[in-house]
Write a protein that binds this DNA or RNA. Structure first.
Length: 478
RNA sequence: GCCAAGGUGGCGGAGCGGCUACGCAAAUGCCUGCAGAGCAUUACCACUCCGGUUCGAAUCCGGACCUUGGCUCCA
C-alpha cells in the first residue's frame, strides 16, 4: 500500500510502527462557527482513509482534536455577548452533527484542547528545560533557530522564512518563533495557571500535547488540509521532535487539496463559503461524498451546483443497478444458476473488478479511479442482465461486492425516497396525485391526447411526470 | 521574492514512458401508445508552450508562461 507523504513529496510504502495498529490524527476544527463544505471535504477524505485501512485489516485509532480555546472563539463570544466556553460547546455540537450527517463516523475520540492543559504545560516545561523555548514579557516562545529541521515539511529554509506578513512581536528572538503560551493577566479572559503565570496555550502545542497523550512521541499518519502545512504542522514537528528527541514525529503526512469556488479558495473573508448545513438542505450527503471522492484527495476541486448535480446523476446510475438487481433477485424467472462457462466468466469478472478497486485504493487512495472500476462493473452487469445470461447467484455476488464498496466509500447505493426539496405541501401533493389517477384512467382508455395534454400542461407548471409501465408514475417539481 | 499544488476531450476527472480510464453531456439503437426515465452501443483520439532524452513522452529532463494557495489566522 502506497501513500503520498508531504515530507518526502513522494509515495511511500505504508508500514505502521506497531504491527497492524494505525494511529491516525487529523486536525479538527476551531469551534467558533459552523463548518463549511471545504472542511467537509477534508473530513470525508480522512473518513475514507480510516475506512479503507480498517477494510485492509488494520486496527485504526482515529483521533481528532477540537480547538475549544482560541482568540477567534473569544472574539466571537465577546461580539455575541456569550461565554466563550458555551459558544465553543454549541459549535462543537453542531460540528459533530454535521459530521454525523455526512457519514463521517470513524473518529474514535475527539480530544478537547481545554481538557489537556496539564499535558500542554508539561510539554512546554520540557521544551524550556532543553533550551528550545524561552519566556518573555508576553509569553513563552519556541526558539526556531535551535531546531535545525525547521522548515523540512514545507520545504523552506530559514532564509525563506525571514519574510512575514504580520509584524513579529519585538520580544521574540527570531521572527519565526511561535507562541507556546500566551500570557493573559486580564481577569475577564479564559485563562489557566501555569509556571509562567495566568494565560492560555498557543495554537500549535495543543495538538502535540494531545497526540503525545494518546499515541506517544511518534505515530503513523497525520492528516489535514494543505493550508496547515505551514506553520501549524511545521510547528508540531518542531515541538514534539525537540521535546522527545525522537524523529520523525509521524511516518506519513497526508494533506488534502482545497475545495475552491470558481477557482478561488472557499473562505470566510471572500464570502464565498457554503456551510455544510446549507449544502445539505439542497443535496443529499451521498451525492456530496461522491463529489468529493470523484477527485483525488490531494487535487483541488471546484465546487458548483452543476458539479454536484453531475455527481448526483452518476451515483444514480449505480443505484439504478442495485435496484434492478434487487428486483431480479425477487423475480421468479431469474435462473438459480447459469451454465458453468457463464458462471466462471462472471466469477472472473467480479474478481477482476474487486482487484482493480483495491489496486487503485492501495495506490494513495485513488478514489476517482476506484469509482471508475465500479462503473465498469455496473456496465458489465447491466449487459449480462440484458442478455439474460446472469444467474441469481452471480447477481448476489455482484450485490455483495457493491456492498463492500459502499462501506469503504461511506456512500449508500440503495435508492432513497423522494428528495427533500421535491416534497410539496400536502394539498398540492394530493392534487398532483389526483391528476395522476385521472391521467391513468385516460391512459387505460387509450385517450392519449388528453393524457399527454395534461402532462404537458403540468410540465409548464414545472411539475414533471414520469409514467411507469405498470401504471401510475412519479412526479418531480423543479 | 521564496515555497507548494496545478494547467488533460464540450464539461468533470484519472493516468505519470508504449495498452490513451471512468462519469456527465451528445448521437444511434432497445424498451415504451408517446414522452421521460432506464439500458446498450458509438463517436471524438484531448493533454499550456518551447527545447531535449528515447525506437516511442500527457508521462522523464531543461526552460518559459499561466492559475490557485502558503509565507506565522485557516480544513
Amino acid at each position: 500500500m502506497m501513500i503520498h507523504s508531504t515530507l518526502s513529496g513522494n509515495k511511500e510504502p505504508f508500514q505502521p510502527i506497531h504491527k497492524n495498529r494505525v494511529n491516525l490524527f487529523v486536525c479538527g476544527p476551531t469551534v467558533y462557527d459552523d463548518s463549511h463544505i471545504g472542511h467537509a471535504r477534508t473530513y470525508i477524505a480522512f473518513d475514507v482513509v480510516a475506512r479503507y485501512l480498517k477494510y485492509r485489516g488494520f486496527s485504526v485509532f482515529y483521533l481528532q482534536n477540537l480547538t475549544d480555546v482560541d482568540d477567534k472563539i473569544i472574539q466571537r463570544a465577546s461580539e455575541l455577548g456569550a461565554e466563550p466556553a458555551s459558544l465553543a460547546r454549541k459549535f462543537e455540537k453542531r460540528y459533530l452533527e454535521d459530521m454525523h450527517n455526512l457519514g463521517v463516523t470513524n473518529v474514535n475520540f475527539y480530544a478537547r484542547a481545554t481538557e489537556h492543559i496539564p499535558e500542554i504545560i508539561s510539554q512546554i516545561e520540557r521544551l524550556m528545560e532543553k533550551g528550545f523555548a524561552y519566556e518573555t514579557q508576553t509569553g513563552v516562545y519556541f526558539d526556531e533557530s535551535r531546531f535545525e529541521d525547521f522548515g523540512k515539511l514545507s520545504h523552506q529554509t530559514a532564509e525563506d522564512l525571514e519574510r512575514h506578513r504580520i509584524e513579529p512581536d519585538p520580544t521574540k528572538r527570531n521572527p519565526g518563533d511561535f507562541s507556546l503560551w500566551k500570557k493573559r493577566e486580564d481577569k475577564e479572559e479564559v485563562t489557566w495557571d501555569s509556571p509562567w503565570g495566568r494565560g492560555r496555550p498557543g495554537w500549535h502545542i495543543e495538538d502535540t500535547a494531545i497526540t503525545e497523550t494518546y499515541f506517544g512521541p511518534q505515530y503513523d499518519i497525520h492528516g489535514g488540509a494543505m493550508d496547515l502545512i505551514f506553520p501549524h504542522h511545521e510547528a508540531e514537528i518542531a515541538q514534539m521532535e525537540a521535546a522527545s528527541g525522537r524523529k520523525p514525529l509521524v511516518r506519513c503526512w497526508m494533506h488534502t487539496g482545497f475545495l475552491n469556488v470558481k477557482g478561488e479558495k472557499m473562505s470566510k473573508s471572500l464570502g464565498n463559503f457554503v456551510t455544510i448545513r446549507d449544502m445539505l438542505q439542497r443535496y443529499d450527503a451521498d451525492s456530496f461524498r461522491f463529489f468529493v471522492l470523484s477527485a483525488h484527495y490531494r487535487s483541488p476541486i471546484d465546487f458548483s451546483e452543476g458539479a454536484l448535480e453531475q455527481s448526483r446523476r452518476s451515483l444514480e446510475r449505480i443505484r439504478q443497478l442495485v435496484k434492478i438487481i434487487e428486483e431480479q433477485l425477487e423475480c421468479s424467472e431469474t435462473p438459480e444458476t447459469a451454465s458453468e462457462a457463464l458462471q466462471s466468466e462472471v466469477d472472473i469478472r467480479l474478481a477482476e473488478a474487486k482487484a482493480k478497486f483495491l489496486e487503485f485504493m492501495d495506490n494513495d487512495f485513488n478514489t476517482p479511479y476506484a469509482l471508475g472500476a465500479i462503473f465498469e462493473l455496473v456496465r458489465d452487469v447491466n449487459r449480462r442482465m440484458n442478455e439474460k445470461t446472469i444467474s441469481r447467484k452471480a447477481l448476489g455476488d455482484a450485490k455483495n461486492l457493491l456492498g463492500e464498496w459502499e462501506w469503504i466509500l461511506g456512500i449508500s447505493f440503495s435508492s432513497k425516497g423522494p428528495e427533500p426539496a421535491q416534497k410539496p405541501e400536502d394539498l398540492i401533493g394530493s392534487l398532483i396525485e389526483l391528476l395522476i389517477e385521472i391521467r391513468q384512467k385516460l391512459r387505460d382508455k387509450k385517450d392519449w391526447q388528453l393524457a399527454d395534454d395534461i402532462r404537458n400542461r403540468m410540465k409548464e407548471l414545472n411539475i414533471v411526470l414520469e409514467d411507469a409501465k405498470a401504471g401510475g408514475g412519479k412526479y418531480t417539481i423543479k
